[in-house]
Amino acid sequence: MTRLTMILVLMSAALFALSALAGTAPMPISDTLAALIGQGDEAGRTIVWEIRIPRAAAAFVVGAALGLAGAALQGLLQNPLAEPGVLGVSAFSALGAVIAIFFGFAALSPLVLPLAAILGAAAATAILAIASMRGAGSVTLLLIGVGLSSLAGALMSLAMNLAPNPYSLSDLVNWMMGSVANRSWADTLLAAPALLIGAALVLIAGPGLRALSLGEETATSLGADPRRTRLLVIGGTSLLAGASVATAGTIGFVGIVAPHIMRPYVKHDPQSLLVPSALFAGMILLVADISVRILPLQQELKLGVAAALLGGPVFIWIAARLGRSAA
């Protein structure tokens, strides 16, 4: 483990402790700390271990998945503005979930919604994988991603038109904005297998991502296999994105912002960037989630909205700076 990773892990642990203190239920700090180490009364332990910490864990895991996926996609496409949304994977994942919600399948079993989201991501992945196996380059994949995102948007509108149950619109809005409110350990565990496999695939692709820094042709001549790297990253990121969309809805920007901030600390190396980006993105969502819990608003701000409020301006700043250096 590098020093940077160690620092990020310690900071994450501190944020977890902080998030145990934050919530709407009034609880003195001493009671919270007692509950955190398994002491104190039953109610306090329940609030901390069954409500606050699971929710924080969901926020961190979703953020880490998006940060890892973003860092991997940026390495693959050699573009600092890439993230799961760019390849249309998030949009298709959302489409899968929308269909599950609107047609009532989601009510059948708690497993249906996550499965539909992962299936949606997998559909986008299949299209990208076929294009990749036919030799499509990074630019082509980006363009296919733009097409997939638009298509998913259109299909979601179609699904709303055809939906038998108009009352589910509020469900949809809640979910499209992204939130980890009321997430239990079960929700995170449900997503865990897809997240772990996705993370493993992306980490295996790491060295290939560094070789790709010199372009596909040079990478090939160095003995790397850009096509294999592409398949690993596409497969891994769709699992990561699908599982995170299933857990928390659609949350943007963290996948772009976290790798960008971490890059100078790893000497811009695409492989060394992966783990720190995941940890930092997890921290960003933890902070965003703590903020929405303690902001004194009538109705709790959605996590996706908070993430966009924090990440949007940073994203614009990055894009503007890139434009200046390219000019």
Binding site: Q78, P207, R210, S213, L214, G215, T218, L222, H268
Partner: peptide
């Protein structure tokens, strides 16, 4: 190659290290 692009702002020694990618793919 004739066109020698580097996608990220890597350190000079890390670019050179890529020449040994097949032996040891590390920075």
């Amino acid at each position: 190659p004739q066109l020698r692009s580097v996608a990220w702002n890597l350190r000079a020694e890390d670019v050179v290290a890529l020449g040994r990618f097949i032996e040891s793919p590390a920075p």
